[in-house]
Simulated scan of single mutants.
Amino acid sequence: MSWWSAAHCRGTDIETFFPPPGDQAAVQRALTICGLCPVRIPCRRYALRHRERYGIWGGLTEGTRDTLIRIGPRSGPSSG
């Protein structure tokens, strides 16, 4: 996790990224931090690869990650 040292969430209370269910304001706070982060893509990849079930990682909520994992990798447009 070499990207971790450049993450904007470093030093932020970890609970920020594990908001209570239904607390959309808390979710938005975490997503705002992720949205400004220079390493959001490596963080996102880490969370998807390791199937992180909880929290907000790389600007993705639990539900979004679950959907991306379920649909799996997408191939490019067909040339057909």
Score class of each variant (00 low, 15 high):
Arg29Gly: 03
Gly22Ile: 08
His50Ser: 14
Phe17Asn: 11
Arg10Glu: 11
Phe17Ala: 10
Ile33Leu: 03
Gly63Asp: 02
Gly63Ile: 02
Arg40Asn: 09
Arg44Cys: 00
Glu15Tyr: 06
Asp66Cys: 08
Arg10Asn: 14
Met1Gly: 07
Ile41Met: 02
Gly35Arg: 12
Ser5Ile: 13
Gly22Arg: 06
Trp4Thr: 15
Ser75Val: 02
Gly58Leu: 00
Arg65Glu: 01
Asp13His: 06
Thr67Ile: 05
Pro42Phe: 06
Trp57Ala: 03
Thr67Trp: 04
Leu60Arg: 03
Gly58Glu: 01
Tyr54Val: 14
Leu31Trp: 01
Ala6Ser: 15
Gly22Met: 07
Thr12Pro: 07
Ser2Arg: 04
Cys43Leu: 03
Arg10Gly: 15
Pro19Arg: 12
Phe18Gly: 05
Ile14His: 13
Met1Pro: 05
Ala6Val: 12
Glu52Trp: 09
Arg49Met: 13
Pro20Tyr: 08
Ala7Gln: 14
Trp57Thr: 05
Thr61His: 01
Arg65Pro: 01
Thr16Cys: 06
Ala25Met: 06
Ser75Glu: 08
Leu48Tyr: 07
Ile56Gly: 07
Leu48Arg: 12
Arg10Cys: 14
Ser2Thr: 06
Leu31Pro: 00
Arg45Gln: 09
Gly55Pro: 05
Arg74Pro: 01
Gly59Met: 00
Phe18Leu: 04
Gln24Leu: 13
Asp13Val: 07
Met1Ser: 08
Arg49Gln: 15
Gly59Lys: 01
Gly76His: 06
Ala30Trp: 00
Arg44Met: 03
Arg53Gln: 14
Ala26Ser: 03
Thr64Phe: 01
Gly72Cys: 11
Gly72Gln: 09
Thr61Phe: 00
Thr16Val: 10
Cys9Lys: 14
Ala25Asp: 05
Arg29Thr: 07
Arg44Asn: 01
Trp3Arg: 08
Pro73His: 13
Glu15Trp: 07
Arg10Ile: 15
Asp23Cys: 09
Ala30Pro: 00
Ile56Val: 09
Gly11Cys: 15
Phe18Ser: 04
Thr16Met: 10
Arg53Tyr: 10
Ser5Phe: 11
Ile14Gln: 11
Pro20Met: 05
Cys37Asp: 10
Ile69Thr: 10
Gly35Thr: 08
Leu48His: 09
Thr67Pro: 00
Gly76Leu: 07
Pro20Ser: 12
Trp3Gly: 11
Trp4Gly: 14
Glu15Asn: 12
Thr12Arg: 15
Ser79Arg: 11
Asp23Arg: 10
